[in-house]
Nucleic acid binder design. Structure first.
Lengths: 146, 146
DNA sequence: ACATTTCATATTAACTTACTGGGAATTCGT
DNA sequence: ACGAATTCCCAGTAAGTTAATATGAAATGT
């Protein structure tokens, strides 16, 4: 019941790109440096995010990545499901309808469903923009000028 | 983010013992048969439950296991934490205080804390007695006589 | 004594995780 | 046209986990 580094790093990548967005491409090398994550491992994770359309890539020198959409358009749930796979706590819930031969009489399925709902309810209601906002609030970077 | 068979089987064992409680010892062999789980694997899981004091064992012929306490005294959370380890979605939350060097500025920690709370809130509020009750309700085994 | 049952430990095959490495393809600047 | 920078792609790998299986010792009722 742990989220792997792949999923955690993916969320941090998305937040890093949102935070450091200047309209220009951001290189893996820079993200890796800021986040303290190996470049090569990040490449793979960013590859997933790019393939899914979360990121837009530019190849070649001066290339890099940008968020495809606004930070508010990405939930933590979307990022985790992409990188971790389904967030259901038991595998039998992944197929629909449930193929488990015991599912009709399974006494514990309801607990797992409640658990899945609770998990989804958290991760699907936090966006990258929410994380960014909290980050900036803590850093006191808000611009309160009128 | 999956619960392993060890955790799921442990919950089923506890429910099986509650359901088939006659005051006498219940053998691994019988639980294994009812639940469709390998005896040898169950032995290990039951060993954990026994060592933790959840079950009381009687050795030798006609030996077996019984729940140490009333089914209402065991939550699913207790059973899962014993068999799965901590239910925290990220490892850095397992040590207190958090030892992660980034934890003071970690933008994502709050999400994981919310997630942990949501998970705990579900599993700590469902007891073996709750599962048993639902089981009996479905089977129509309630005794409504006055 | 014997059958039954728990208890303890070792082994194993398959899978997953968290990387590392090599190199091809693409693009910018000069 | 060339070289440096960068993404893209795929292969390999060491360590750990999962889900068992195997073997046999210890305890106990009959």
């Amino acid at each position: 019941m742990k989220i792997s580094t792949r999923g955690r790093y993916a969320v941090r990548v998305m937040l890093d790109l949102a935070e450091n967005n200047t309209g220009e491409c951001i290189k893996v090398k820079d993200i890796a440096k800021r986040q303290g994550i190996s470049e090569k491992y990040l490449e793979q994770i960013i590859g997933l995010l790019t393939k899914a359309g979360f990121l837009t890539s530019v190849r070649g020198a001066q290339g890099g990545y940008t968020l495809t959409r606004d930070p508010s358009a990405y939930t933590v749930g979307q990022i985790l499901r992409l990188t971790e796979g389904s967030l259901n706590p038991v595998a039998c819930m992944d197929a629909q309808p449930n193929q488990c031969e015991r599912c009709d009489t399974c006494e514990t399925l309801e607990v797992w469903q409640d658990l899945a709902n609770a998990i989804n309810n958290v991760v699907d209601h936090v966006t990258v923009a929410d994380l960014l906002e909290k980050q900036r609030a803590r850093l006191g970077n808000y611009n309160y000028s009128i």
